[in-house]
Design a protein around this nucleic acid. Structure first.
Length: 705
DNA sequence: CTAGTAATACAAATCGAGGA
DNA sequence: TCCTCGATTTGTATTACTAG
């Protein structure tokens, strides 16, 4: 603003005239001249004018160029009455129409050029007509502040018309079809509204007409708002990020669309008095770091919507509403920090993993209760849940180590060279017998050299030895049929799973279908076991036969087999299955008996296989030649991975196929960079290392093309 | 005071191994 | 088949610091 005001004052238009133009005659300062031959010195208090404008929040858009001509604008026509020197006629009132016009142009955000005309002696007018040309909408306005002087708005087809129109008389102007005469109604607002309408009539159709020359540089805006260029630059660039078409590079300088400039000027508007500075707010609040408070502020502001904080003269000021919310949030967070238990502490207390604790907390919390809260990056557990879990897990911490030579289930299975579920079942049985009670126990699990707090059963060497001899004896002499059969033996011989047999046995007992199972001494192991009569065997086989379509059609397949075929992750396949089921696609997955495991399993139709083929996420392959993994790249160039991430985001590497997932050397999916991308990044690195900042600005965008 | 950079911290997602 | 674990990768928040 200062620049344009300076231009205006230096344009050759007399200072008094400028003041009249702006309806700002109160800013004229008269200083008595020291020389008595000279008149008083009249000057315009530009500083006061600008600061008042800033205070009031209403900025006048000053002309792009202002000049004075020695010619009369809209001279009197032939038929006009000449009234001599105008003596004896009452001086006409002044109406600040120019000021109103400038206000209208400011509202419409239009740039304009001002020309002040001369007065001639034989004219009635005491004030000159001004010519205002608005290039973006090709409008020409003739305006005069003197009472009774009409205002004319003309549409200009060619630039040559401007001079032509200026030389005509008012009467001639009125006759022209593309000229509108605007009369003073006595009310500034209606006059302004009419003027605005005439000027902006087809403004919407002409948005692009505004030439880039009229756009604003950073300095232009900075001088308007009286804030530093850095602040303005940041604001402008931030806005321009959202409207890339609103910023151009003109030579060395950036130029911004007037809309952006206006927005920034808006941002510099003073804020209400009850707003509080961010630092004052932070000092009253209870956050450890200033940055934390700043992050919270941004988060809260986002939920509130805009307009609750504003930077004014290097001060980030917050609305009272925002401040209250931050205060409440800080109190809430303080309470969490003081009373709740941080996750790391919980891990130490219980000796369990974070996932484990999380699951228990979720179980512990009631309806709608929120027992887990993340503050910053620490997870806090509600005190009640924490206490409950700590109490419940004290047993884990008390877990001892298994005695030397004792074996876990896996160990027993390896010792017997039999990894079937049968071993597990046998151990289960043995551990219920009092005889063996001291030969097994629950201890902490050992995984290689590591002690893990999972209660795990370990079995003594003598128990294992017994099991071994038992199995040898069993092999020699199978169970006698005259006693009936045990469930385990039946499972082994019938092919029906022991889980199903248990289920059938329960139904058999409840329904009293045949003679009940009776306890007896096993001829080989001398254990007391339950023996089931032949009727039960028959019943079990019947139940088994009744199971829905016991064998799957040949092309139906289980999820796990499908997983092996497509090399898909568990979760990926599960998601695909869920979506298949969710869409109610036919035929639906159906339970069948698995030919090998003899268990009932969910089988999926061949349609699902095709569904997976078409919907599966593209499975990574080995990287083609020349592609480099992200990790290798940032490590090789001694850059942080975030640096790389940022650069890739900037050039939209994923969008243009410069970044793809391939298998890395470990066989895991990882992101790889296209050779071109690598070349570009290396070029970038070279530039960053070797050239000053200024070269980077313009050069890189070209390189990207 | 803002915006940018780098280092660090944390958490979510995922996988295979092992036990029940 | 389900669960838990540690290991690993990846994404994002926090922190510290700097230039302008």
């Amino acid at each position: 603003m200062m620049v344009r005001l300076g231009q205006l004052l230096a344009s050759g238009i007399p200072v008094r005239e400028v003041a009249r133009l702006l309806d700002a005659e109160s800013y004229l300062v008269t200083t008595r001249s020291r020389s008595r031959y000279a008149g008083d010195i009249v000057s315009f208090d530009a500083d006061r004018f600008v600061s008042d404008q800033l205070q009031s929040g209403a900025y006048l858009r000053l002309p792009v160029t202002a000049s004075q001509t020695s010619e009369v604008i809209l001279p009197a026509g032939e038929g006009t009455l000449h009234v001599g020197l105008g003596e004896g006629i009452e001086p006409k009132r002044t109406i600040p129409r120019t000021r109103y016009l400038i206000e209208v142009l400011t509202e419409l955000r239009l740039d304009y050029h001002l020309l002040d005309g001369a007065l001639s002696d034989e004219m009635v007018r005491k004030q000159s007509y001004k010519r205002v040309y608005i290039p973006s909408v090709t409008r020409l306005v003739f305006v005069c502040n003197e009472e009774g002087s009409a205002t004319f708005v003309a549409h200009v087809a060619e630039t040559a018309d401007i001079e032509d129109l200026s030389g005509r008389s008012k009467e001639e102007l009125e006759q022209l079809p593309h000229v509108i005469r605007l009369v003073w109604t006595g009310d500034p607002e209606t006059w302004k509204a009419q003027l605005s309408e005439f000027i902006a009539r087809d403004l919407e159709q002409l948005p692009a007409a505004e030439s880039v020359d009229a756009w604003f540089t950073i300095s232009d805006v900075a001088q308007q708002v009286l804030l530093t260029r850095v602040w303005v630059r940041n604001k402008l660039h931030a806005l321009a990020d959202q409207r890339p078409e609103y910023v151009v590079r003109s030579g060395k300088a950036w130029k911004f669309h007037p809309d952006l400039a206006v927005q920034v000027i808006e941002l510099a508007r003073p804020v209400p008095e009850d707003w509080i500075s961010f630092d004052a707010c932070w000092r009253q609040l209870d956050w450890p770091a200033r940055n934390t408070a700043y992050a919270r502020l941004r988060a809260v502001e986002q939920t509130l919507g805009g307009g609750h904080s504003r930077v004014y003269r290097y001060q980030l000021l917050l609305s009272p509403d925002l401040f209250q919310r931050l205060k409440a949030l800080s109190a809430y967070e303080r309470q969490i920090r003081d009373e709740w238990v941080p996750m790391p502490t919980m891990v130490k207390r219980t000796g369990k993993s974070i996932t484990w604790i999380k699951k228990r907390v979720e179980d512990a919390q009631g309806e709608g209760g929120d027992y887990l809260v993340t503050l910053g990056s620490t997870l806090y557990v509600h005190p009640e849940a924490a206490e409950q879990i700590t109490f419940a897990t004290s047993e884990f911490l008390a877990l001892g180590d298994p005695p030397e030579g004792w074996l876990s289930l896996g160990g027993v299975q390896r010792a017997l060279d039999d990894d079937s579920a049968h071993v597990h079942a046998q151990l289960e049985k043995l551990t219920t017998e009092k005889v063996w009670a001291s030969d097994w126990g629950t201890y902490a699990r050992w995984k290689g050299e590591q002690r893990i707090l999972i209660p795990t059963r370990y079995y003594s060497p003598s128990l294992v030895a017994m099991l071994k001899s038992n199995r040898v004896a069993q092999a020699a002499q199978p169970l006698g049929s005259e006693y009936g059969t045990t469930l385990t033996a039946l499972a082994d011989t019938s092919g029906i799973s022991r889980y199903k047999l248990e289920e059938y046995a329960a139904d058999y007992a409840v329904g009293q279908i045949g003679p009940p199972a009776r306890p007896g001494i096993h001829p080989v192991s001398r254990q007391e076991l339950l023996f089931y009569p032949p009727q039960f065997v028959q019943y079990a086989k019947q139940r088994q036969a009744e199971r829905p379509s016991s064998v799957a059609p040949p092309d139906w397949i289980t999820l796990s087999a499908l997983r092996a075929r497509f090399q898909l992750g568990k979760k990926t396949l599960k998601d695909l299955a869920d979506s298949y089921i969710g869409q109610r696609l036919e035929p639906a997955p159906t339970p069948f008996l698995h030919p090998v495991t003899k268990r009932e399993e969910e089988f999926y139709p061949p349609q699902f296989v095709r569904y997976v083929e078409t919907h599966q996420p593209t499975r990574p392959k080995a990287a083609p030649d020349g592609w480099v993994s992200r990790q290798r790249f940032w490590q090789a160039h001694d850059k942080h991975r975030q640096w790389l991430q940022r650069k890739l985001d900037e050039i939209n590497a994923v969008g243009q196929g410069w970044c793809e997932v391939y298998l890395n050397s470990r066989g895991n999916p990882s992101r790889f960079l296209h050779p071109d991308c690598v070349a570009y990044l290396e070029l970038l690195l070279g530039l960053e290392d070797n050239t000053p900042e200024s070269c980077l600005d313009g050069g890189l965008t070209d390189l990207l093309e």
